[in-house]
């Protein structure tokens, strides 16, 4: 489904990603963790071409992201993405946030898009908020809407870029619950997150990044049992200690 092949990226002279390679097969859930500045957010944004890269290639659903001939908008329409700061469109109601992509990108009728939107709002438990604006919702509610917006495009896989790190602690679980539900349904997911509980529960593999490189790429049990690298051990001890 997603094949990351020797990706390197520079900001001017500064190298932010170094020879990153991994694969995510259909139905797999992969959690990417690592200290801040390790390049994990940059890597996930490379997957749907939001960040350009200078070396290597990423293949999503047999389509090359690095190929300048690739129709990126068409590809992104089928790759859902959820952002750290939700990034709902503040001037549209919740329903409009869910329908705009369906209508303008997928070409669905207003009616069909509306039906699908209500169905998804129901699923994330936000039916009653359909006509409100994003600014009137709590952070947790906004992030659930953002997940629904991505799902409305019927994606073949989902990318999550630190979906809970901008949330107040009491709102984290309502978002994780939705993500666990998705994972259990067999959605292919790449999740940048520090939520180790979530990783333990649903991840098939955990990737640990540091300094722009993939340091550890292991099955979940193996990762939490005996991480091979010292840096991953140090990282785990820091975030699991409290």
């Amino acid at each position: 489904m997603i094949k990351i092949d020797n990706i390197s990226k520079w900001y001017g002279q500064f190298r932010v990603l170094t020879d990153c390679s991994t694969q995510i097969t259909k139905g797999e859930v992969v959690v990417v963790c690592g200290p801040s500045g390790s390049g994990k957010s940059t890597l996930i944004k490379c997957v749907n071409g939001l960040e350009p890269f200078q070396q290597g290639d990423i293949i999503v659903n047999n389509i090359s992201i690095g190929d300048p001939k690739t129709n990126l908008p068409q590809l992104r329409a089928h790759v859902g993405m959820v952002f750290q700061h939700f990034e709902l469109f503040p001037h549209m109601t919740i329903t409009q946030n869910l329908t705009i992509g369906q209508v303008k990108v997928l070409g669905r009728s207003n009616n069909e898009a509306h039906q699908r939107a209500l169905q998804l709002l129901d699923r994330v438990g936000l039916n009653s908020q359909a006509d409100k604006f994003p600014g009137q919702l709590s952070g947790g509610q906004q992030q659930r809407v953002a997940i629904a917006r991505a799902l409305a495009m019927d994606p073949i896989c989902m990318l999550f870029d630190e979906p809970t790190s901008a949330l107040d602690p009491e709102m984290i679980n309502e978002v994780l619950d939705v993500m666990v539900g998705l994972a259990n349904e067999g959605m292919t997911m790449m999740v940048v997150s520090h939520e180790m509980g979530f990783a333990r529960k649903v991840a098939d593999r955990v990737i640990f990044m540091d300094n722009g490189s993939i340091v550890e790429d292991a099955g979940t049990e193996e990762f939490f049992g005996t991480p091979r690298s010292e840096r991953a051990q140090l990282f785990l001890s820091k975030i699991l200690s409290h």
Binding site: K45, N48, L50, L72, P73, Q74, L75, R76, A77, H78, V79, G80, M81, F83, Q84, H85, E87, L88, F89, P90, H91, I100, G101, K104, V105, L106, R149, A150, M153
Partner: peptide, 30 residues
């Protein structure tokens, strides 16, 4: 506007002109 708004527009498959038309300009003008 935050850079994330543009990315969010692109991420749901809008082309750059569509992202400006539906996401960036309506907020910028307000």
């Amino acid at each position: 506007l935050s850079r994330g708004q543009k990315m969010a527009g692109l991420a749901i498959g809008f082309t750059l002109p569509q992202t400006y038309r539906y996401v960036i300009l309506p907020m910028a003008f307000r």
